[in-house]
């Protein structure tokens, strides 16, 4: 029995060691792919930060071609203001030497995060070894979940992150959603009240301004980019929509290196550019990227503060 027990124990231990080796190798491989995909450690001059709105709004490769500058696009679906603050700190902590501009996606609904996932922090799990991310996640999840993710590295990923890692190795940065928004159904849905309201959670605004202040203190230009949202949607609550826009504009005068670029005028009524009320389709993405490159050239690149 004892001999059997020792052979059995050796086999179990060997299996566990093999699992952890495999777990470690896979996670190293995937983190490497993600770093390439997001451009972390690639010494970019332009950093794009936002959620899916900006992800589908800007084409990284086209922007690089137009500006002749290296671009990192660190955008994730559902990233909240808090997540984005951590993403910026994580990025700058690792690689801030050449960054001249940060493009930060803004919209009228960003201070009302009811529809965004409460566990959006999970998208940052692959970077758990980064101290900034580590502190953030420690506060966000349960102790069990934290230690599970700490111990078994592959649990930090999901299929989207795995796919992004592979895209990083394949240098495939396209984010496209084909099709056009069905405005008739959209109007019906809006009439039924199927939409988010525009409101500003003071805590969220404070957190956002803290990020603006942080970037400003690093002497890096900040472009607050409003990728257009469809006018039918914007006009639902035009008073609050304008109020938020005014708040963004006010930041320009408050902070030295902040520029607010609102691409709604002229584009939000072109329904053919939208995949859904918020996200652009490839045609919309192309136009917005070109317009952004013009703005970047005009405001930031020629007028470098670094």
């Amino acid at each position: 029995m004892l001999k059997n027990l020792s052979t059995w124990s050796i086999k179990v231990i060997l299996f566990i060691i093999l699992f952890f080796l495999l777990d470690f190798s896979i996670s190293v491989f995937l983190v490497g792919g993600l770093m390439r995909y997001y451009g972390i450690g690639t010494h970019p001059e332009i950093l794009i930060i936002g959620h899916s709105h900006l992800m589908l709004g800007v084409d990284k490769e086209l922007l690089e071609n137009k500006t002749k500058l290296r671009v990192a696009k660190y955008t994730r679906e559902g990233a909240t203001i808090e997540d984005r603050a951590i993403m910026i700190r994580q990025f700058l902590n690792k690689d801030s030497s050449k960054i001249r501009v940060i493009v930060y996606g803004v919209d009228a609904w960003m201070f009302n995060e009811e529809k965004l996932s409460e566990n959006s922090y999970k998208m940052l799990l692959p970077f758990l070894s980064d101290t900034i991310v580590q502190d953030y996640i420690k506060n966000k999840c349960s102790s069990f979940e934290y230690h599970k993710n700490f111990l078994i590295k592959t649990t930090r990923f999901d299929e989207l992150l795995v796919s992004s890692a592979f895209r990083g190795y394949l240098s495939k940065w396209t984010n496209l959603k084909f099709g056009q928004v069905d405005t008739i159904s959209l109007k019906k849905d809006l009439l039924k009240g199927k939409h988010e309201s525009i409101k500003v959670d003071p805590e969220k605004w404070k957190s956002f301004e803290k990020t603006v202040n942080y970037i400003n203190s690093k002497n890096i230009r900040l472009v607050l980019l409003y990728v257009p949202t469809i006018s039918i949607y914007n006009n639902l609550d035009s008073v609050n929509f304008k109020a938020i826009n005014d708040k963004f504009v006010s930041l320009e005068s408050k902070y030295q290196y902040v520029k607010y670029v609102d691409l709604n005028p002229g584009l939000s009524t072109h329904y053919e550019l939208f995949y859904d009320p918020i996200h652009l389709n490839p045609s919309g993405q192309k136009i917005v990227t070109k317009m952004l490159s013009t703005h970047l050239k005009k405001y930031c690149i020629t007028d470098s503060i670094k």
Binding site: F15, D23, T155, E159, V162
Partner: peptide, 14 residues
């Protein structure tokens, strides 16, 4: 061994 390692990694990753 390969099969069960694959399953275990599959569960933790996906």
């Amino acid at each position: 061994w390969s099969f069960y390692l694959f399953l275990l990694v599959g569960v933790s990753l996906l």
